[in-house]
């Protein structure tokens, strides 16, 4: 039996953009206001009568070759054998170099604790035999979580039978969050021209 390596497969075709994953994450991981560990990116194509919306659930990829653990100066960011990248909250000095290095913008500074945090794929729930809170709560079962080294697991089957994509493959980070049916524009970085929820998009430039 090979070692465990967790992965997530997100079937974007099933996502109804209800934000339940984001809410469950906030409740489970006590993510403060202003920051998010899981969220949905929604992109609209075309003009009003023919506009189409495309959604992309976003969370930490818990990469196979993470740049954050390589660049962390204090080894506060480390990777478990099952692939989950954690941040040691007692060791992190808050230099934010991991945030600057991460190509996915999934790390954040907890404004209450002044520490860097991220999505840990709810490792405390995994250790208790449960699945992450977002996977548990997703009403359309768009999120699937499991061990890729176990050929009988649901993720292995999905990965073997569907066309999947990962975010920014060219970054050589080996992301372990796979998308099925994600839109190419939603997966790339697009300049924001019109924003309907301006207050929600938290661009804070501290200078």
């Amino acid at each position: 039996m090979a070692e465990k390596r967790y992965a997530m497969v997100i079937d974007v075709r099933r996502c109804i953009s209800c934000f339940a994953c984001s809410v469950a994450c906030k409740a489970e991981m006590k993510v403060p206001l202003e920051v998010f560990a899981t969220w949905l990116k929604i992109v609209e194509k075309g003009q009003d009568p023919n506009a189409q919306r495309f959604v992309l659930p976003r969370l930490c990829n818990n990469c196979g070759n993470p740049i954050c653990t390589r660049n962390c100066p204090t080894r506060a960011t480390w990777q478990r054998e099952d692939g989950i990248v954690l941040v040691d909250q007692h060791r992190c000095i808050g230099c934010k170099y991991c945030i600057a290095s991460c190509p996915y913008d999934v790390r954040y500074v907890n404004p209450l604790k002044n520490l860097v945090q991220k999505c840990y794929w709810c490792h405390h729930r995994l250790d208790a035999g449960l699945v992450p809170a977002c996977v548990e709560t997703c009403p359309t079962r768009a999120l699937t979580f499991g061990d890729v080294n176990d050929p009988k697991s649901e993720v292995s089957k999905l990965l073997a039978t569907s066309a999947t994509q990962v975010l920014k493959k060219e970054m050589q980070t080996e992301p372990f969050v796979y998308y099925i049916g994600a839109d190419e524009v939603a997966m790339s970085n697009v300049e924001e021209e019109i924003n309907y929820y301006t207050e929600s998009t938290l661009i804070k430039i501290r200078i």
Binding site: V185, N195, T201
Partner: peptide
């Protein structure tokens, strides 16, 4: 036309 309806951006590190 491509508009971003919702996205999260964290502050500059």
């Amino acid at each position: 036309d491509i508009n971003v309806v919702y996205n999260v951006k964290h502050q500059l590190p």
